[in-house]
Design a protein around this nucleic acid. Sequence first.
DNA 1: CACGTGCTTAAAAAATCCTTAAAAAAGTTT
DNA 2: AAACTTTTTTAAGGATTTTTTAAGCACGTG
Lengths: 226, 226
Amino acid sequence: MNILLVEDEKALSNAIKKILEGRGYFVDAVYDGLSAIDYAKGMEYNLIILDVMLPKLDGFEVVRILRKDNIGVPVLMLTARTMIKDKVTGLNYGADDYMTKPFDTEELLARVSALTRRRGEVMIEDVGFEDLTLDLKTAELRCNGESVQLSKKEFEVMKLFLYNPKMTFTKDNLIINAWGMESEATDNNVEVYISFIRKKLKYLKSRVSIKNIQKIGYRLEVTGDD
Amino acid sequence: MNILLVEDEKALSNAIKKILEGRGYFVDAVYDGLSAIDYAKGMEYNLIILDVMLPKLDGFEVVRILRKDNIGVPVLMLTARTMIKDKVTGLNYGADDYMTKPFDTEELLARVSALTRRRGEVMIEDVGFEDLTLDLKTAELRCNGESVQLSKKEFEVMKLFLYNPKMTFTKDNLIINAWGMESEATDNNVEVYISFIRKKLKYLKSRVSIKNIQKIGYRLEVTGDD
DNA sequence: CACGTGCTTAAAAAATCCTTAAAAAAGTTT
DNA sequence: AAACTTTTTTAAGGATTTTTTAAGCACGTG
């Protein structure tokens, strides 16, 4: 369940994002009207939460443009409590619901779930490749009905591989992505973790393995392929 | 939780009444504007659902009169999809929310609970998962005929788990949802409460337990599953 | 075969989590 | 308002898991 959040006030934006993510929604946050249009055209959202007052292009314009382009995603408008007239304008331009600021957590969640019509339903998003599936919620790696629990770092590394199954990653690549820019991890750290993961892949009897190319890096490989 | 339903179309009125009664609300149905005023003055309702088009006295007038008499009960207006301008008028006269016909059950329930909950009241339904049932009214957690009383915070945490039984919550998630955005609760607070709840789950001999995945979060687990 | 590079493992170190007890705060009752 | 109860927070020690470190072995390439 993907939500596009358009709100220029950073503090509020972060608060809303956290609340929604806490309930399992995936949230992209942008901070002005033009980006909102770009994002909304770029991918399929299940809901757009749209502040009225925005830099570059206000909320009304955003809805109007989207509707003109036949993008029918439900839109929830945020307006200041005083500006009741906004409600009308927004609704005339094609918004589906409005909510006045400030609002409380429960109200937000109620309206969001009303608009997405998926009350209580769970949203599971997994990444997969060949016979492997990685559960992004629990960091469990599954294969042939079996599953193993990955640790946080194993998870980060595996996620990288599964998102880019054909790519070869240098050790530095892996360090930056799984350990972070600041980290002082060494090549040996990577080797150790590759070893951990290989052990788990073997246990799962997966057709996928991690291949090393000397001095170049690691990538996924499927037995019987090349 | 008492609701006054004002809708002259008998078939629709009965449908709404049934839906709401199914969720534990008590519903009085009347069929014109004058009766609406009588009833609303006669007893305390938690919510009035008000059609715009009514015999004798239309919906707008009803809200206006009630507000003038300092009756602040939340009002949810029903309008035909085409009559967007009604929304404005209704809101200006003091309605709290509107809904366009036709609408679906989930939407109705979401709005009704948003409006009734806003006044701090608790809903009547229970949440359940596997052998557990959480009474939202009393915060009692039941299992196999036994039951234990949860404290406020235990209740908030458990509610979150039961509403999203498959989801994994980070400690931050739990803090935001159970303690609130502003709170300065630490990870340790969460750990302590998880421990409290686990003790109660054990006492109830439930098949459900709370599993931790290091550095990732907590989620419900059913013994014998995975 | 020798060198660099990668693999594996064990153990040390660090981080995270669990549990409990006691202090503080909030809520009740008398 | 004081005494009591319950809930929530804080704190500390121990248990567990993850991550790092380090050392010896294996492997392939030149």
